[in-house]
Amino acid sequence: MSTSIVKDLAPGAAPLVVLDGVNKHFGALHVLQDINLEIAQGEVVVLIGPSGSGKSTLCRTINRLETVDSGTITIDGRPLPAEGRELARLRAEVGMVFQSFNLFAHKTVLENVVLGQVKVRKVPRAQAEAKARELLERVGVAAQADKLPAQLSGGQQQRVAIARALAMNPKVMLFDEPTSALDPEMINEVLEVMRNLAADGMTMVVVTHEMGFARSAANRVLFMADGRIVEENTPEAFFTAPRSDRAKDFLSKILHH
């Protein structure tokens, strides 16, 4: 594909994120069933699947916003600690972008990007502000720095949210349906930022329904259904020749509507 920005991964490097035998229940519902997954440094993994398949839950377990019932999750060789300061430290290294942006409503755009650096990373304020402005410039919302989140469009808010996560210098970025709450004309400005991020070598886990993004930016597509990873492949192979019936059924519904 001519628009593809997928880069080659260094072979043989130790995986950055490892999920081993992960299980989770919501009451009687078995949302994650024996998930085994390795994500390499610099890899872009896209999670797709019907709603309720567990893809958002899987994404949220990686920084322990959801606890797991069994199995282990390791980030850069360290297992996820239980609740507490140790977990907080690890979370700072995992950036998270939410469907509903979740910018701090009482803080300006600039403050949103400064807060974590100053309070969690203990970066001096002047340095944090300089970095925040640089990141806001990078995602194209520098002019909005002194506004409150509510004064921005959805697309702008989501780009600020990406800048806020990047400010922590994360090792991996998680995107939980980052464009699902956006008006159609704003989706591309967010996907563009994400494509640039992928091209710069960021390790990314992206839950999305944007098949165009999956095709152009993903190294690997994971198809989930009923709490399992049913199929995984390169985007090219997955979209042109899905193997499982569930994936064929899913693709026929979303590609020909």
């Binding site: 907080a88 701090f104 409503a105 969690v120």
Partner: peptide
């Protein structure tokens, strides 16, 4: 979502409560 965003930035429980 406000608390989740704060926690995912690495804030402790106390920081999340106090700052956000």
């Amino acid at each position: 979502g406000q608390a989740e965003a704060a926690r995912s930035l690495g804030m402790t429980f106390g920081q999340t409560l106090r700052l956000v």
